[in-house]
Amino acid sequence: MTNYLEFEKPLAEIEGKAEELRAMARANEEMDVEKEALALDRKAEDMLGDLYKDLTAWRKCQVARHPDRPHCKDYIEALFTEYTPLAGDRNFADDHAVMGGLARLGDVPVVVMGQEKGNDTKSRIERNFGMARPEGYRKVIRLMDLADRFNLPVIMLVDTPGAYPGKGAEERGQSEAIARATERSLNVKSPVISVIIGEGGSGGAVALATANTVMMLEHSIYSVISPEGCASILWKDAEKMREAAEALRLTAQDLKELGVIDRIISEPVGGAQRARADTIAAVGQALEVELTALMKKAKGDALIRDRRKKFLDMGSKGLAA
């Protein structure tokens, strides 16, 4: 069953009708509805194209958070071989919101990690909806230590509403853990690549998006604050999230123009949730191209220098008026 978003309701109606017609035809063999059903299919296809051609910022937020979008686990399982999960932060616990370990991308051994949101009630609770606690960021740090020590490229997949705002998380130093993770990723002497595959939520995302190459899926978002949060602070009304989403410039297209990200990976018409395998393949292809380029371009300290320079230079240009 397709999970329709609010703005996809007209589409749901048409697709529903086509489905109904076909069901009737199955029940009554004399009826020939295929022509009408095909016409409805075409109409639905056109509408899907129109809807996704020019998504507003708020609609992109909805697509980015779509429960059927491929998540970190799906990418790791499909794109990497010999994935060997490594657990724990060596301090306190293993945070299930962050998954990662050793794997091969093609022939290249890498360290891969990312936030995983889960795909049903049980796994969502286990993964804490992709909201990491300090243990998660400290796990990121120790995985980067490993990558640095054995000169393995680091690949990070970002998909989180943000770092977990909980009592224990604060007590155990959420801020310090995030700050150290960002610091660590700036210091890794192997290539570091990030892909924002869904939600890039604020400080909780940035530690996993401090990379030589940062890519975003076409309908993913990356923002300093959620549109709802921004609306409740600046508009004093959480219902103004549409306006806030627009003002924050959180789409991949705006971020590319601002020079914050390097590359946009196109999604199939109708978004990643409708063509999961194609989307995962597109991400895999982009990763291989960018990793090969990065490994050719620079090594060791030069990679660190490039990464730092990239962030120091950031923000020198604004958006066109």
Partner: peptide, 22 residues
């Protein structure tokens, strides 16, 4: 916290200032 009116560019001050500390 971060200055929301500068959106993602304010978030990018986290890695930027970290480079300064380094």
């Amino acid at each position: 916290g971060a200055r929301m009116q500068e959106g993602i560019l304010s978030l990018m001050q986290m890695p930027r200032t970290t480079v300064a500390v380094q």
